[in-house]
Design a protein around this nucleic acid. Structure first.
Lengths: 195, 195
DNA sequence: TTAGAATATGTCGAGTCGATATAATAAGTA
DNA sequence: TACTTATTATATCGACTCGACATATTCTAA
């Protein structure tokens, strides 16, 4: 799913400027499943405009910078629908927290504990953010759809499961890296032998 | 977390060729949290080699293409540790399935149902894959660490929660998009639709 | 009043992804 | 046996994406 399609998706619900589209990806109901920055959005809008899938209208505002409000065209709606019909790519999850924890046996114990703590805090923040989003029933000019409720609900369920796992297993991990048993013993023995 | 650091992370557990590193990201215990393709790995290894963080050794094999096996150096271990100490970026989740479902009210009902079905199948596949990974206790030359168990267990918990949510809410979504009038989620509308 | 957040658009380099090329052999199938 | 696909192995290339920075104005709060 490229940024052009994502922009069409946002514009499906109503006209918006590049800046407003960006905000949608930061705060809106799709913020936890897709992302795009300015560096992708503005070129995408230019290309969409060239292809006649959106129509830009520059508005001069008093006491605000000029803004170009984009509206999706008939051809754009068709292109969006075509994109929505194609089989989606597999989900992709990227976590630097998880990557760092793979090396918990190498890191200081208090750093591992602190890492999990911050990860938990981030998860709790996301949960409250999504709960607010779900309770809003309306986001700006965009009314909440059945899909919104499903996807936001799914996000909350996932984050809650992740937080629950961390809360119940963080002490197990800390204990494991502190008591060098079975698997860890061999590594220690090798290091001792090397000395 | 750039690909150079990810490669150092793989090589921390033992020497490997670019091809073998790629396989780690496809099948190994970090496949569900980080990814990298050939187009990123080979340039990364070249740069790491130039910087003295890894050492490449070209091996001529009978009845197989030559391969260059990379080994992490002392400087590389230090660079990895430094990267593991820096505060991690926030998790990033990308789902085209979820994006498409945001537009469930626009798509044919059977397509939405089919979409959720395929998404569920993918989740169940990931769960069995991770469970196999967890039961393996050893992946090639790499012994399973406490961090591995934590991260794989977390992945399983997340996928199970996602699958459970879909199973219990898929019919709600289908029912909601079949109700024709947007504002009428009342009992009257339900009775009218049933008749 | 002075700093900073918000509104608004854009550029640029570094990095990443996916497809493709090449090339040998092993394994499975008609 | 002949054909096809998969596996091992490395590499390039264009298109795309990301994050940081540049620019400028106004509203808000310490």
């Amino acid at each position: 799913m490229d940024v052009k399609t994502l922009c069409l998706g946002v514009l499906h619900f109503g006209p918006a400027s590049g800046y407003e589209i960006r905000k949608q990806f930061e705060d809106g109901p799709m913020s936890h499943i897709q992302e795009a920055g300015f560096g992708s959005i503005y070129p995408a809008l230019r290309k969409l405009s060239e292809d006649g899938l959106v129509k830009g209208d520059t508005q001069h505002q008093a006491s605000r910078p000029d803004k170009t409000v984009y509206t999706i065209t008939e051809a754009g709606q068709l292109a969006l629908k075509r994109a929505l019909m194609t089989p989606p790519a597999d989900d992709r999850f990227r976590s630097d927290y998880a990557f760092q924890l793979l090396f918990a046996h190498v890191l200081p114990t208090d750093m591992v504990d602190h890492l999990i703590e911050r990860w938990l805090i981030w998860h709790r923040g996301e949960i409250t953010r999504l709960e607010t989003c779900l309770a809003a029933a309306q986001d700006g000019n965009r009314p909440q759809t059945a899909g919104d409720r499903f996807v936001i609900g799914l996000g909350i369920a996932i984050y809650q499961a992740a937080a629950a796992f961390m809360e119940t297993h963080r002490n197990d991990l800390i204990a494991e890296i502190n008591l060098p048993s079975t698997a860890a013993k061999t590594d220690v023995a090798k290091m001792d032998a090397a000395e």
